[in-house]
Simulated scan of single mutants.
Amino acid sequence: MMGKKLMAVLFGLLMLAMPLTVGQVSAASETTVILVSDNAADKAIAEYLANLTGAVLVTTTWGTYDPNVTAEILSYAPDQVIIIGGPEAVVEQYVTDLEDYNITVYRWFGSNRYETDLAVIGNASKLFGIKFNATVVVAGNDSLAIQTALRLALQNGAMILYVNQSTNVSRIMEKFQVKEMVMVQSKASEKVMEKVARELRTCNCNAKEVQANVTAEQVETIMEQVRERFMAIEEIANLTNSTQLREQVREMLQLMEQVNQSLQKGNVSEAYLLALKLQVKTEFTLKEARMELHMAMEKNGKLALEMELEKIEAQLKILEKAGVNVSSVQVILNKVSEAIKAGNYSVARVLLKDAKKALHELYMANRELMRENSCTCHDHGKSGRH
């Protein structure tokens, strides 16, 4: 019930609403990595961009810092990294890590997933010269419908536009024209898409509708992501001994059990709605967990040193895997570990600085070797982490 009048409209809107990007990216660089969180909306547009451009896609758990993610990015020896999503989704520590290695970093984002979508499409259009043949519209909080929208967008050279109850479709239609549009929905987003359809009817516009049917397997895929987030929260709760986080863990366990029960009873739609609720809850809790961890590290010098050591060790392993002789840095790290165990934290801090400097020098001297190794070990254009 939405016909063939719709693409120039939304593309024009994207260009008008596009937030400013940080700097100007060079499209001529040999290697580009896209870093994104596992948020369904952000990740879908990152996957779309990686498929179109051949960039390497790396995913991190929403709102958390994982030293292995930085190490993976370094393994590609990229010229530039494009971060999709704001600092709550992809934490600023990644920017610091990468800039320490003189890697150019750009962050494309808005105040929410809807504005981030616009920012990515607008910036990608400018940088890579991407032109779109159609528009796929989907609710920004319907994870499975988003996956269907992604497939349709890739098949048809379309852009993905996220909508919610606040999206003013009538205003869009008053100002622009559209060539082709597809609406994707599941039972979880019927109300949002009904509103979109109503507004389109007021301006005599139609579009093709696609129903995304939820399966038990798809719900289980979402729950795998939820469990990864849950383990990150549980780990921080144990590290910080936070009563509040432990309570959140208990609540999430109860919700996870409800999902399992719904699946066992064959109530797949109910299980899906609960899984979406868990996605939102884990994001709020991860934000809280990050603050708890930050406070714990400020109070506990040993914890902060151990985490910094873990980061450098992860990066060192990447160089070693590429065939670089890392023994000189490893000697320093062994001394760091001994100093931490002995409680000589001031000595450990000095040694960590020495190790970090030596590691950076090794990386810069062997950057081309790293890149050659990444070409044989990785498949560019696909996600290194899922």
Results as ranks from 00 to 15, higher is better:
K4P: 00
S125L: 04
P78K: 03
A348G: 04
R113L: 03
Y345D: 00
M7V: 13
A28T: 12
N141E: 15
E72R: 11
V105T: 09
Y94T: 03
K126L: 07
N112T: 02
N68P: 01
A322E: 05
A304K: 13
N344H: 08
V22G: 01
D100M: 11
H386P: 01
M183A: 14
Q165M: 14
A153P: 14
D97G: 04
T31I: 09
S75H: 06
A119I: 08
Q185Y: 09
L35A: 06
L200W: 11
Q211S: 06
S186N: 04
I236P: 03
L333S: 02
L253Y: 09
T282V: 14
K175W: 04
L245D: 05
Y94K: 03
M297Y: 02
Q315Y: 01
P78Q: 04
C375I: 00
V249C: 06
S189Y: 01
F109Q: 07
Q147A: 13
P19Q: 05
D117Y: 05
H360T: 08
T243F: 01
F284D: 14
N366M: 07
A89D: 07
A71K: 05
D97R: 00
V91R: 10
A342Q: 11
T202R: 13
Y48K: 10
N260C: 00
E308C: 09
V9R: 09
R107V: 08
K208I: 07
R385Q: 07
A71F: 03
D354Y: 10
V350P: 05
D79L: 00
M364S: 12
L286Y: 04
M223G: 08
D354I: 00
Q165V: 10
D379S: 14
V81Q: 10
K335C: 00
E292N: 06
T282E: 02
A55W: 03
A304F: 05
K208Q: 12
L333G: 00
V178F: 10
Y363T: 07
C205S: 14
D38E: 12
S328N: 07
K341D: 12
S170Q: 11
F176G: 15
T240K: 01
L293I: 08
A50W: 01
L309W: 05
L152T: 13
N373I: 01
E361Y: 07
L309F: 13
S170M: 12
K287N: 14
G85Y: 10
L359V: 00
Y363H: 02
Q80N: 06
A55R: 03
R171H: 05
N204E: 14
S125Q: 11
V184T: 05
R349T: 09
S269I: 12
L6Y: 15
R227L: 11
D117P: 00
V137R: 04
A355G: 07
M291N: 10
G381W: 11
C377V: 15
T21H: 08
D117S: 15
H386Q: 13
V120R: 06
A50S: 10
S383E: 11
